[in-house]
Amino acid sequence: MEFKEVVGRRRSIRYFLPWRPVERDKVQTILEAARLASRAGNADFARAIVVERDALSKADLASLTLPVNAGMIEMAPIHIYWWGDLKAFARDMPSRAAEQVDMGILNISHGWTHTFINEVAYPQVVQAFSSDEVLCAKVTGCEAGLAISQALLAAVDEGLGTMLCTYPEEPARQVLGVPDSWTSLWVQFVGYPAESWEAGGQRPRPPLGELFHEGKYGQPFRGTEEGAARLRAEKMIQDPAPFSWRKEEVRAVSRMLGLPEE
């Protein structure tokens, strides 16, 4: 699928076909897409545990369940528990940066040398990360989020339904055997959608200028009508919610799955 269409089609899918498994190579594709996302210092912020729902014991499934994820956790055959490694930057940055200097990725033209990494960047940046929890959480969440975003888009590109939801951190740490330095982020549910891929239409978003500014705060970024028209033609901007038949669809899908309809 073309990139813009993938972005346009992505939306949270909340109804999955419980009985339809996801092909393993599609799960691999999702993880590969996340692996290739942009990340500061080339550090391993984003970590994931892939879980096949049917391989979980009843007790483990119950430990991972929250009132808000209860329906999806049982409908989606694949769960990807995304975590952020709070130690990633301090641990990985010096060696990864050095490696990139040797590979000609970080260069003299931008000021990069081994001396800079070892004598300046390490004490100034890396140690700041080790001592400033807020900074560390902020950067880890952002960097892992970039990877998760690519994982979502890859799932859409593979014709799957996907969404992010919350999960209970400590029970998940126990069930999944995750190190203490990992912080819980999102669980990505993956499966074949039981609702149509449109899921009722593209979600409402404020106009561009309300979200994004130009020059300084208060001066809205101005898009053009031609720009928007082109994006509609390329399927990035799609028919907005609500679709006329959406409620009927939700009723039918709920009935199919035995969920409350009304």
């Binding site: 076909l17 009985w19 339809r20 498994p21 039918a252 899908v253 009935r255 199919m256 799955l257 035995g258």
Partner: peptide, 16 residues
């Protein structure tokens, strides 16, 4: 394909 009969059962329920 695997799951076909499961699918039919669910569709029957959906459509009454």
């Amino acid at each position: 394909k695997p799951g076909r009969f499961e699918e039919l059962k669910h569709l029957a329920r959906m459509l009454g």
